[in-house]
Design a protein around this nucleic acid. Sequence first.
DNA 1: CGCGACGTTGATTTGCCTCAACGATTGTGG
DNA 2: CCACAATCGTTGAGGCAAATCAACGTCGCG
Lengths: 192, 192
Amino acid sequence: MDYSLFLSHITRHIDLNKEEGDYFTSLLHYKKLKKKQFLLEEGEVNTKSTFVTSGCLRSYVIDKNTVEHVLQFAPAGWWIVDMRSYVTGSPARLNIDALEESEIFYINKPDFEDLYLRIPKFERFSRILGQNSLAAYQYRQIDNVALSAMERYRQFCQLYPSLIKTLPQKQVASYIGVTPEFLSKMLNTTLI
Amino acid sequence: MDYSLFLSHITRHIDLNKEEGDYFTSLLHYKKLKKKQFLLEEGEVNTKSTFVTSGCLRSYVIDKNTVEHVLQFAPAGWWIVDMRSYVTGSPARLNIDALEESEIFYINKPDFEDLYLRIPKFERFSRILGQNSLAAYQYRQIDNVALSAMERYRQFCQLYPSLIKTLPQKQVASYIGVTPEFLSKMLNTTLI
DNA sequence: CGCGACGTTGATTTGCCTCAACGATTGTGG
DNA sequence: CCACAATCGTTGAGGCAAATCAACGTCGCG
């Protein structure tokens, strides 16, 4: 099993010796997801932290008109979770599925809690990860309220230059908060 | 100086003995803010973590049409920070000011970093705080994309029953993402 | 007292949505 | 390996939620 991407992600923030690394990887579960396969469905409890090693997942809600709204894309190297459900054990509002064939590692919450006690350095790791995620969410929120649809699209292209090439346009539309029809018109009429 | 609200906030998540509590409070700076006084202005670097003990602060952006968009309210017992600026040292996009006369404690970032090394339990505290904040931001984002203006207003009333009574209506409008005129019409025409 | 901030109401505009139809591409089962 | 079904992007007509602009009454405060 290839843990290298995951371990290098961890050791960007904290140092691990061999024993600690081995203990950590012993907690990991590997899973391969087919396109459209669900990792979490609305109403279930999100009991694991998931790290993507290949492919691309997404989290999204479905509103009362059955329209999907993408909250996050998670290509290789990203975590994805319904944090409220994970922290409180309440039913998830988010769905998480695979946009293409993908590989993930996940850790069950009780194992992660043990890990904090056994190797307290992981508290630091999660603290840093949480702060970075929070920074991203704050700024996404700012963009959503302060920018026009076209500006949000440009922002998205800047932020995820690699995703823009592979993602179906309707997924991008859902992420930036417009209909696929509108995004299409926007891209084909705005010549500037 | 009254540290009780702050300390009880901390000890909800981690235990502190007297010595640890004393060291922690020795890092705190007290400040009283007048109404409309700024704690952070766009372009500055957010170098401190701020905890509110009385009154109410807000963070907001100003878009290119000079319209304010409120990202967060911070009444007593809440933290407030431009996390991207705090983490990376980049110029802040957020403004933070006081909606009324308020009291805060802040900790400078280098002191907080030392605190993590001196009392590693604070890594755990910040990890838990970060996860809770992340949960809140994810769900706010969901509400913003999946709910109508009226539903967002109701959601706000549920979430901040105490704020709704004291806050000027235009601040609430800005938070839920509509103009003050529209919120007024919405509340006076919808009889249901 | 007088000024500025706030809430309200009306007339008008607009950014984006809805619905519908169509061609191009992808993928899948017979 | 082909045929058919999905899925996707595009385009047009029409509609609606919310914004903009403007005017006015009220209140709190310096």
